[in-house]
C-alpha cells in the first residue's frame, strides 16, 4: 500500500462526479482518478492501470474495488492492493469540504 502525502488541493465541485463513477484529475504531474462511492465517500488512486495503462476512472466500482475496463483486473480502493496479483496502485487522501473535492491532508 502506497499512500502519497500531498498538500491539500481543491479538485473541483463534488457534483462533477456522478454517484458510483470516477473522473480523472491532473494534479501537477500526477494523474489521479477520484471515485464517488455509492456510500457517499470518496477514494483517490493513481489514474493509470499498472497492468497495461488502462484508464481506471472508466472502470466500474463498488464500495471496495475498482475494476479496470481493459482487462478487468481489480484493485482495492482503500489500500491500492491488487486482487489479482498485479502491482499495487497509489492511493491518496481525499475528502469533501463544502461540496468540493479536496485532495491531500
Amino acid at each position: 500500500m502506497t499512500i502519497t502525502p500531498l498538500a491539500p488541493t481543491v479538485l473541483g465541485p463534488l457534483d462533477e462526479i456522478p454517484l458510483g463513477e470516477g473522473r480523472t484529475y491532473a494534479v501537477g504531474s500526477e494523474m489521479i482518478a477520484v471515485f464517488r462511492l455509492r456510500d457517499g465517500s470518496l477514494r483517490a488512486v493513481s489514474a493509470v492501470c499498472p497492468h497495461k495503462g488502462g484508464p481506471l476512472a472508466d472502470g466500474q466500482i463498488d464500495n471496495k474495488v475498482v475494476v479496470c475496463p481493459l482487462h478487468l483486473y481489480a484493485w482495492d480502493l482503500a489500500t491500492g492492493c491488487s486482487q489479482s496479483g498485479q502491482p499495487p496502485i497509489s492511493v491518496y487522501p481525499v475528502r469533501v469540504d463544502d461540496g468540493h473535492i479536496i485532495l491531500g491532508d
Binding site: E16, I17, P18, E21, T24, V48, G53, P55, D58
Partner: peptide, 16 residues
Amino acid sequence: ATPGQFRTSLPLTVLP
C-alpha cells in the same frame, strides 16, 4: 447524460 460523460480519463498521458 451525466456530468463529464465524455470527459477524458487519461488527460495528460502520452497514449501508447
